[in-house]
Design a protein around this nucleic acid. Sequence first.
DNA 1: AATAATATAGAACAAACGCTCGGAAAAGTC
DNA 2: GACTTTTCCGAGCGTTTGTTCTATATTATT
Lengths: 202, 202
Amino acid sequence: MTTKERIVETALELFSQRGYDGVSVRDIARAVGIRESSLYNHFENKRAIFDGIVDVCVRQSEVYFRESALPFDQGDDTSVYRGIGLEHLQELIERTFRFFFDDPWNARFRRLLLVSQYAEPRCRDIYQQLYRDKCIAVQAYIFSALMDAGEIRREDPLAVAAEFHGPMFMWIHTCDSFEEARPLIREHVEQFRKNYEWRPTP
Amino acid sequence: MTTKERIVETALELFSQRGYDGVSVRDIARAVGIRESSLYNHFENKRAIFDGIVDVCVRQSEVYFRESALPFDQGDDTSVYRGIGLEHLQELIERTFRFFFDDPWNARFRRLLLVSQYAEPRCRDIYQQLYRDKCIAVQAYIFSALMDAGEIRREDPLAVAAEFHGPMFMWIHTCDSFEEARPLIREHVEQFRKNYEWRPTP
DNA sequence: AATAATATAGAACAAACGCTCGGAAAAGTC
DNA sequence: GACTTTTCCGAGCGTTTGTTCTATATTATT
């Protein structure tokens, strides 16, 4: 790993805990194991380190959404999820949730955006897109497929996705560990299943 | 309004935007309209200002929960909400939501806790209690009453409350104005009503 | 092996930081 | 009106901040 990469990784860890102003250039240098003057060989100034972190993480999240989540922006073809059933939802959600919660880069980046969002408009934008809009869009896509498959009752997919993602959002933001969140997520998926699974009209 | 109160109010505004380390004592003094040395007649040091804000706001929120919300910790008597029906939920929720969103003290305090939660364990605790646990407890109380009244189907009230509060939590944290959030809240309450309102077994 | 390019360290800078102090002004008490 | 208490201000304290500079190491290229 190059020094520049180590700086980014270390600074992300620090910024995500104490915020931009709570971390000094000397703090970062000490944590990396070099002197602060050496930092300036890799970044123009402190601000550039912060911006560099955001750039890297945004790029990573784009890769995630393109590869691991869905091609939900490639038209309305829901065939990717044709074989999906409600019984797969629990596992699918737990995997996604684990990524957002436990992946070291993503968990730190989420905290970074969270604590920076009111000081930095760009962070607010990314935060809203990444942890609300994109998540809801992906889930709306899945629910659309589930509706087509007759697994859940037909409703506005975006509204259903918002109902689903709301509690997820809350547990992601207020639980201290994945273990604490897991049973709550399970209960949520269970409630959701009861509420939306298709039943023949009486 | 005393100078001390003006300091607290001003510092809350600043801290909630830029965080503890992002605001200097001189910033606060300038915004209040006095010199920084005069600040030290009212507070021992910068940390005491921050702690003073938290104390004041915690006290205010306790008053709110005791007076405006519910005596939900006074036993299991749900008679306060005996007359409530599902048709009142929309209005009740919108009023509560508006308080959390628009009340200048509460909105700023929420941001303050949010941006400070990873640097200050106390803020993390208060944040979890205030915007998750207490809200869910209050709502569980209301839903308990609605179940007793046969308005919604019987389920674990805490689980139902979590389902209800999740989307609220999300919109509170990611919407930029009450006007932006209002239609989303309405849709949420509508979905919730469809999902939980009592129907005679076929 | 010589040369060029890059990374590092140490010293130093001005500016901003939290904070203290002594004296002037204001407010409250008798 | 004299006295005490509180509040304010300006100057200044030592420290930390972000950043620059120069000399020395390390690495890459020829």
